[in-house]
Design a protein around this nucleic acid. Structure first.
Lengths: 211, 211
DNA sequence: TGTACATCAGTGAACGCGCGTTCACTGATGTAC
DNA sequence: TGTACATCAGTGAACGCGCGTTCACTGATGTAC
């Protein structure tokens, strides 16, 4: 039920993709917007599943490897599922408003997937973030607190904040690459990602001893 | 000639916006794709103009302020011109292929606008980047070298690399915010941007004394 | 086992709409004498 | 100054297309007796 291939998001195109006729979809979705919502939820969940699986590929006693595996999986998934990535992180669909009560929990799963890896690394003393990450502005603190409570995600606020920051930086590299802006500049985008994610984690206080 | 407002990029919509009828545009552009190309070039150039202007608002002897002004201008411009930002950095338009020989120089102007601020800060010893930014992978070095040569942008490779990295991180924050992903998490997106850009520059080796 | 009927996934035709594009045209402005 | 003509920015009608959506339908599958 994933709209693979490029993009061209349209009810008719999706029906075609599935070997059906457009009206047939109305047996399963009330409208195009309902279809879109379902696809968005699927995409968020598929990404979260992928991140979790990649993270858990690595043993608990190697938290740096778990972190790196999670970051790499993000890019790999985006490149492998450009339509899904675009659907959730690309230009908003004009006239479509996502139902937040459904999309936010699905999106939060991705924060949790990465946050778990970060928390593990911090607990084992492999990740020692700079001091600014325990003293960030109160307005942000409040928002993260309610995010944590609303989603029953029991984790220190500093971990949550660090998660958002790392996700954001990682996302910058991936969107720019997927939408064709990184290639012309740095050439080897895979190497650039690998190298910069390493740099970022090191700047964030990751100790990289045992590889 | 800017398609303000939300998005809904279509030749007819643009004509409507300009108080004209759709066929009238064919006197100025051969096809919709030509129109789109012109809008993309305008957007890249407008952004570059904005970055340069913001940077040059600050005196040469305060390179940290020049850097921060440039970074802030990027976000401000994106929020003020969401349609233009989306046009150049959002989901690629299906079926449209931008003519690189035109778009790349326009895009490079933005690298140069930021790169100039970075180079200035480094020359004055206010920005002392970590060692990994003078020793990055050879495949990337080669691509940056040809970017530098093709665009007659005479600057050390390490400055160019640092520019790409900072642009990428900055872009991650801005796209996620503009497309609605940051707000639900951190609440105060303006404060988040301000705080994180400061953190990033400090991690990159910026000395912030005279604020 | 065989007939009668209900269920329901999916079809095909049709609708109104906005799109990109073409084409013959209108009508204002500028130039020639 | 006045008439005749050329130029050219913009119009309005029309085209074929893909879209989301509706509706009456078909035909396979399952249940009742």
């Amino acid at each position: 039920m994933a709209a693979q291939g490029a993009a061209a998001l349209s009810l008719r195109a999706i029906a075609r993709d599935m070997g059906m006729t457009a009206p047939a979809l109305y047996r399963y979705f009330q409208s195009r917007d309902d279809l879109v919502t379902a696809l968005i939820l699927d995409a968020f969940n598929a990404l979260a599943d992928t991140l979790e699986a990649a993270r858990d590929t690595q043993p608990e006693d190697n938290p740096a490897a778990r972190l790196l595996a999670t970051l790499n999986a993000y890019r790999d998934w985006a490149l492998a599922h450009p339509a899904d990535f675009t659907l959730i992180f690309g230009t908003p669909i004009p006239g479509y408003e996502a139902p937040r009560e459904l999309t936010i929990p699905a999106a939060v799963r991705n924060y949790v997937a990465l946050g778990t890896a970060i928390a593990g690394a911090m607990q084992r003393g492999v990740l020692v973030p700079p001091s600014e990450y325990s003293q960030f502005p109160p307005s942000i603190q409040a928002a993260l607190e309610s995010l944590r409570v609303d989603n029953h995600y029991d984790v220190p606020l500093s971990v949550l904040y660090l998660t958002v920051v790392i996700l954001t930086q990682m996302h910058g590299l991936v969107t720019l690459e997927l939408f064709g802006h990184t290639g012309p500049a740095v050439g080897d985008t895979a190497e650039f990602y690998r190298f910069e994610m390493g740099n970022m984690l090191r700047r964030m206080g990751l100790q990289m001893g045992n590889h």
